[in-house]
Design a protein around this nucleic acid. Structure first.
Lengths: 362, 362
DNA sequence: ACTATCAATGTCAACGCTGACATTTTGACT
DNA sequence: AGTCAAAATGTCAGCGTTGACATTGATAGT
């Protein structure tokens, strides 16, 4: 932890010297100018300087100009810490609490958030929990001490009840990608169910009956929903037990490749595979090595150059997810009361021909 | 712009009512507890509460416990705005000013920054300038008003002299990917020159003589260096004029594909192409469509699934770039004096066989 | 019993700013 | 010249916290 060191200028020697050492006004000031400094130079009170800075109308033209020139020459920059403290400790910083910073998905979400927030004069502070449930509360606590204006988070801890008090104090909390547990909060999620269900239906239509599903363990809401959609669409087609083809073991993002090899080694291997997230997709692609004539493939989440490789995906707009979440934050700030909303970001199947278009004989 | 609204509790009615309406102490407090509130409940002075919160030793065990329990029951959370103001307006927030949020490169850098900063109790605030030089100073100004502790930036404006005063006040400025203009500042850049020079040498070794270079206009330091490395290695091989094969026109990230088609339409088309950045790479891959038997290809910057597609790249670790930059910030905070450093992040050629390994007859 | 010492706690002011309110100045109109 | 409203400016306090310093009370040493 870096300690804040109070840096007063070299023209503030220890007390013993003060009486004898003359001030050195010619040197550039070593500490920041305040309203009072500007006022002194312009021959007005700090309050008048404040009025100028805030753009109040009740300042004579010549005073305003004198103040502005003094401010410029002292490089005055209003202290928002002080201003915010004065105004009830309300900042214009919104925190985005994210599990795994290296997942490109979240970055695109963050980009959407940043853009929307900045349209409303709000700034985004990014905090990572390293996908560690225990650190979530600690990170959030730190942010609240900074008096962030609102919280955007990808919930990772099993329980967000610790935020209840904060919510009552009027801090908006918006959950991203999955809803909060034990906390009334807005959330923005994907159409997970519709996404996989649609993909499965498409595969069924092409004649596939044995369809594999490679994903992480279904602990997260999003993955549960995707699994549910997959099973539901299979059930529609009369396939009531899909468990032989479910491989929910890619916890670390490295196992998906192996899962595919396992599936292909079955006596009756699947003729198509769906990946439940972008990490799993990468694993599947690695395992299949573009041999989609053998096994059809559809991945959840688009990725760079998937179009070149001709890989079909269930796509959506991560930036839109962020944008909507930020929009909810702004809405809640303007109108703290109101029922919590759950927004669903649409997904759509982009068919690029990675096997899923070919009609398969049963 | 959202106005900070002072939210005092419902138990603070207008003055006219105050005398008649009894306070409702049973209701949860609608405003945040302060040191004074906690002190009142625990029967001690605010200062003693402060001591407990700061972990000072000079508090008796029983007082400490009484205070802690009072703090817990009031959900007390120290106000860092006030604390920071008291301590000379020094925060623990470091800003990362970034041009284009959607470039995955910067996100990985940001991830590296965040991780390193958090090891030192610092938080990262992300601000985008939308690649607009004019907005850089505005964005930075806003951040400085918030009294960010240090600035990490990808310089986009042609001049950073406006930060000189701030530097003198002790705010570390570290530039990323390219050095600052007219400002003494640390910077962390890539081994751009060595990267392209090495790639060209490898192609020369394989027998290539006509090597194309597809990139954005060489306005940025990084691109200039890459171009320089490309030309230098060609000159080493006796090829003194490479201009016919230079296509520095991919300003928007969309033109690279067209540039490749132009190159291939030449009377003597290049037998190999180097892309100067990841956007250009995507364009080249799109244009060539994996037909590396026709034209060899090496891209600057690795990307997801480049290994699967077997595309050779000049790679480096973006997170390392961020980590080093953050390290510099921490170093400068601990030791404000010292010569500015320029750190170079190594690049290395990863040969995956996108044509560059095949020996070409001259 | 009497001081010296030290631990535990309190008082006060200030960090920089701005609302609420007070005062002074200006100028327009009798 | 005298009155009054409006405009321009100033005074003061307090946002929540914590250093510097003061005070209290207990313990130990003579």
């Amino acid at each position: 932890m870096i300690e804040p060191a109070v840096r007063r200028g070299a023209d503030s020697p220890p007390d013993s010297d003060r009486a004898t050492t003359p001030p050195a006004p010619s040197l550039a000031p070593q500490s920041r100018a305040t309203l009072a400094d500007v006022g002194r130079l312009a021959g007005v009170s700090p309050k008048t300087v404040s009025r100028v800075v805030l753009g109040s109308s009740n300042v004579s033209k010549e005073t305003r100009e004198r103040v502005l020139s003094a401010a410029r020459s002292l490089r005055f920059r209003p202290n928002h810490l002080a201003r915010n403290l004065r105004h009830g400790s309300v900042t214009n910083t919104v925190a985005f609490v994210i599990g795994d910073l290296t997942n490109p998905f979240y970055f695109l979400v963050a980009a959407g958030i940043e853009r929307e927030l900045s349209r409303h004069g709000l700034m985004m502070i990014l905090a990572a929990t390293e996908d560690d449930p225990a650190s979530e509360e600690r990170v959030v606590e730190t942010l609240l001490k900074q008096r962030v204006r609102a919280l955007l988070m990808v919930p990772i801890a099993p329980d967000q009840a610790y935020l209840e008090g904060e919510r009552q104090l009027g801090t908006p909390v918006v959950c991203i990608d999955r809803p909060a547990h034990n906390l009334i909060a807005d959330s923005v999620v994907l159409e997970n169910f519709r996404g996989t269900a649609g993909a499965v239906r498409e595969l069924i239509r092409a004649g596939h009956r044995r369809i594999g599903f490679v994903c992480s363990p279904a602990e997260l809401y999003s993955h549960q929903e995707r699994l549910r959609g997959y099973r539901y669409a299979l059930a529609e087609a009369g396939i009531l037990d899909s468990s032989p083809w479910e491989r929910l073991e890619d916890a670390d993002g490295q196992t998906a490749e192996q899962s595919v090899h396992n599936l292909l080694a079955m006596a009756e291997p699947p003729t198509a595979i769906i990946a439940g997230n972008n990490r799993a997709s990468a694993g599947v692609v690695r395992a299949l090595g573009n041999r989609f004539d053998r096994v059809a493939f559809i991945g959840f989440d688009d990725f760079e150059l998937a179009d070149v490789a001709g890989i079909s995906v269930i796509a959506y707009d991560p930036a839109e997810l962020g944008r909507q979440a930020a929009r909810l934050v702004v809405e809640r700030l303007n109108d703290p009361i109101g029922l919590p909303q759950q927004i669903e970001i649409p997904t759509r199947l982009i068919q690029r021909g990675s096997g899923e278009l070919r009609i398969v004989e049963p």
